[in-house]
Design a protein around this nucleic acid. Structure first.
Length: 321
DNA sequence: AAAAATGGCAACCGCGTCGAC
DNA sequence: AGTCGACGCGGTTGCCATTTT
C-alpha cells in the first residue's frame, strides 16, 4: 500500500504555468493569503493545479521581491562558503540570500557554479591567480594558514589539526541563521555546523589510513591497496583523500612543507611543489571528476573538510567517538 | 541549413518531519 | 502514544533555447 496522492492526479494540470494561471494564483494569494493550506488553495483560486505545484510556483516565481538574473560574486562566495559548511541545504543557503530561492540556487550551483569551480580545479596552483572570487578565497586561506600557530606545524596529531581547522573556519565570515531555519531537527544547521567541525578531520582521519612522511601527510597508503597491480581499488577513497593533502599542506605552510603528495586516482601518487616565486606548480596532469567538486571546495573556499552527505559522515564520526 | 549535443531552468516527485487530533 | 494529513526539502526530470558539428 503506497502513499496516498496529495491530489487527484487525473484532474490536475501539469507542466508550465500559463500567464493566466499565474495571474489567478497571484491575485488569490494577494487577496486571501495562502490560508495555511496549499492543498485546498487551487480549488479556491479556481486553478486545476496540485497544491504543491501552486506553492512551488508562488515561492519560486510569483512571490514579491524574487530576484532573477545573474548572481554576484558576493552571492557566489556565500553559496560556496555555505555549501562547504552545510552541504546541499539549499533552503538554508537561500535564506542567506534575500530574493533568491532554493531552487534558483540549486540550479545555479548545478549548472554554473560547479563548473566554475572545475575551471579552478588545479589547486593549489590556483594560488598564483590574483583576481576573482575563488582566488580571493585561496589567498585568504593561504594567508590564514601561514599565520597559523607554528606549534601545529609538522604535527601528526589529529587533535592539533582539528584545533587548527576550527580556528581557520572561524576566521571566515560569520554565518547567522534565523531560529525558524534551525527549528527542524533534521536540518538543524546549528548542530550541523557544530558537528561538522568535530567530524572534519578526526572522523576522517580515523576512517582512512594516514601517516606522515617527511612532512608529507599521506592517506590511504600501500596497506589500503589490494589489487594485484598495486593500484588502489577504491578510487573514490583516494579522491576523497586528496583534500587532506591540501589542507594539511595549507595549514602547515612554510619551510619544510614545500611539497605535497596527491593521490591521483588510477594514476597513483603525484606531487606538487612551489617554485622560487612561491607559485605552486603541479608536476602531472590533474583531472578531477564531478564527484570531486566538494573536495575542491573544501580545499579552496574555506578549508572545511566537509563533503558528501554530512548526515551520514556525521553519524560515522559520532560512532568513532 | 539541418541535426545533434549541450546547457539552463521550471516543474515534478518522493520522502522526512511536523503538528493536530 | 499513535495516526494521518500537510508542508518543506532536495533530487531528478523534461522541455526549450542555444551552441556545435
Amino acid at each position: 500500500m503506497g502513499r496516498a496522492p496529495c491530489c487527484d492526479k487525473a484532474n490536475v494540470k501539469k507542466g508550465p504555468w500559463s500567464p493566466e494561471e499565474d495571474a489567478k494564483l497571484k491575485e488569490y494569494i494577494e487577496k486571501y493569503g495562502t490560508g495555511g493550506n496549499w492543498i485546498a488553495l487551487p480549488q479556491k483560486a479556481g486553478l486545476r493545479r496540485c497544491g504543491k505545484s501552486c506553492r512551488l510556483r508562488w515561492l519560486n516565481y510569483l512571490r514579491p521581491n524574487i530576484k532573477h538574473g545573474e548572481f554576484s560574486d558576493e552571492e557566489d562566495r556565500i553559496i560556496c562558503n555555505l555549501f562547504t559548511n552545510i552541504g546541499s541545504r539549499w533552503s538554508i543557503i537561500a535564506a542567506q540570500l534575500p530574493g533568491r530561492t532554493d531552487n534558483d540556487i540549486k540550479n545555479y550551483w548545478n549548472t554554473k557554479l560547479k563548473k566554475k569551480l572545475m575551471g579552478l580545479n588545479r589547486l593549489p596552483s590556483q594560488i598564483k591567480s590574483h583576481s576573482g572570487t575563488f582566488s580571493s578565497l585561496l589567498h585568504l586561506q593561504a594567508s590564514l594558514s601561514s599565520s597559523s600557530p607554528s606549534s601545529y606545524r609538522g604535527s601528526n596529531n589529529s587533535t592539533a589539526y582539528y584545533a587548527q581547522t576550527r580556528s581557520f573556519s572561524s576566521a571566515l565570515e560569520p554565518i547567522s541563521f534565523s531560529p525558524s531555519l534551525l527549528s527542524r531537527s533534521s536540518t538543524n544547521a546549528a548542530s550541523v555546523l557544530h558537528q561538522v567541525h568535530q567530524e572534519r578531520f578526526v572522523g576522517r582521519a580515523m576512517q582512512h589510513n594516514y601517516q606522515v612522511k617527511d612532512n608529507i601527510l599521506m592517506f590511504g597508503g600501500e596497506a589500503s591497496c589490494s589489487s594485484s597491480d598495486g593500484s588502489c581499488s577504491n578510487q573514490i577513497s583516494q579522491c576523497r583523500d586528496r583534500e587532506y593533502e591540501y589542507n594539511y599542506n595549507f595549514f602547515n605552510g612554510g619551510e619544510g612543507h614545500q611539497k605535497i603528495m596527491l593521490p591521483d586516482g588510477l594514476n597513483g601518487w603525484r606531487s606538487e611543489k612551489q617554485n622560487g616565486n612561491g607559485i605552486w606548480e603541479d608536476q602531472a596532469p590533474l583531472d578531477y571528476g564531478l564527484e570531486e567538486i566538494k573536495q575542491l571546495i573544501s580545499s579552496t573556499s574555506s578549508c572545511n573538510n566537509f563533503l558528501f552527505d554530512e548526515n551520514k559522515t556525521e553519524e560515522k564520526a559520532m560512532m568513532y567517538y
